[in-house]
Simulated scan of single mutants.
Amino acid sequence: MSCVLTAREVCQCLRDAALGVLSLRPVEEPGDTGLVSVEVEGWRLRLDFEGGRLHHCERARAPDGREGNLETWQRYGTNPVNLLSTWELAQIERLLAQPRRCLAE
């Protein structure tokens, strides 16, 4: 088992969130840079979400502590967001665009 998260592992986390198997919860509002942090049942993801579009995943941390980042994934020619189907991507974008009620809880 690798110590670094692969793009496929992070993509599977996003797929599970898109399907409703795991719940995606923003933990902060997007900043001026368009980056938003989300939690997906123990996973921590930093996503580039600007203009209602999910562009890429900057970094990720799995519940077991393994981490991955954009630089590493691009070295191997992909990004977790690029591996999503059109429908999965639309679902994640819809979840990210929902009102941020959960931030106040």
Score class of each variant (00 low, 15 high):
94 R>A: 13
65 G>D: 11
62 A>T: 01
63 P>V: 11
51 G>R: 12
75 R>Y: 10
94 R>L: 09
82 N>C: 04
40 V>M: 12
44 R>T: 14
43 W>L: 03
65 G>S: 10
76 Y>R: 15
72 T>D: 07
34 G>C: 10
45 L>F: 04
7 A>E: 08
100 R>Y: 10
99 P>F: 01
80 P>M: 07
19 L>C: 01
81 V>R: 01
64 D>R: 06
102 C>D: 13
83 L>P: 02
28 E>A: 13
34 G>D: 11
24 L>E: 09
103 L>T: 05
65 G>R: 12
77 G>H: 11
30 P>D: 05
39 E>K: 11
48 D>E: 10
3 C>K: 11
97 A>H: 03
83 L>I: 13
41 E>T: 09
2 S>L: 12
59 R>L: 07
84 L>R: 02
10 V>F: 02
8 R>E: 15
21 V>S: 07
77 G>C: 09
100 R>P: 00
66 R>S: 10
53 R>C: 10
59 R>I: 01
25 R>W: 01
69 N>H: 12
32 D>W: 08
34 G>S: 08
43 W>C: 03
46 R>D: 09
29 E>T: 09
61 R>P: 00
43 W>M: 04
95 L>Y: 02
70 L>N: 09
83 L>D: 11
10 V>N: 06
41 E>L: 01
32 D>H: 08
56 H>G: 00
34 G>R: 11
14 L>Q: 06
57 C>D: 09
79 N>T: 03
32 D>E: 13
82 N>A: 15
22 L>T: 03
57 C>I: 11
83 L>N: 06
60 A>Q: 07
10 V>Q: 10
13 C>G: 07
28 E>F: 00
45 L>Y: 04
55 H>A: 13
49 F>W: 15
59 R>P: 01
35 L>A: 06
92 I>M: 06
42 G>F: 02
20 G>C: 08
61 R>S: 12
3 C>G: 03
67 E>I: 12
35 L>P: 00
24 L>R: 04
16 D>M: 13
97 A>S: 15
29 E>P: 00
52 G>V: 01
61 R>Q: 15
2 S>F: 02
104 A>W: 10
55 H>L: 14
7 A>P: 07
26 P>G: 02
16 D>N: 15
98 Q>S: 11
39 E>T: 04
87 W>R: 14
47 L>R: 03
44 R>E: 13
27 V>R: 12
17 A>H: 00
65 G>N: 10
19 L>A: 15
32 D>G: 13
51 G>H: 12
93 E>N: 02
37 S>P: 00
7 A>N: 04
98 Q>P: 00
60 A>D: 07
27 V>C: 10
57 C>L: 14
45 L>A: 08
73 W>M: 09
18 A>L: 10
29 E>I: 07
48 D>N: 13
30 P>A: 12
90 A>S: 14
98 Q>H: 04
36 V>D: 03
45 L>S: 07
17 A>D: 02
46 R>S: 11
57 C>W: 07
80 P>Q: 12
34 G>F: 10
32 D>T: 05
37 S>D: 12
80 P>E: 10
27 V>K: 12
75 R>K: 14
50 E>Q: 14
100 R>G: 01
11 C>K: 15
91 Q>N: 09
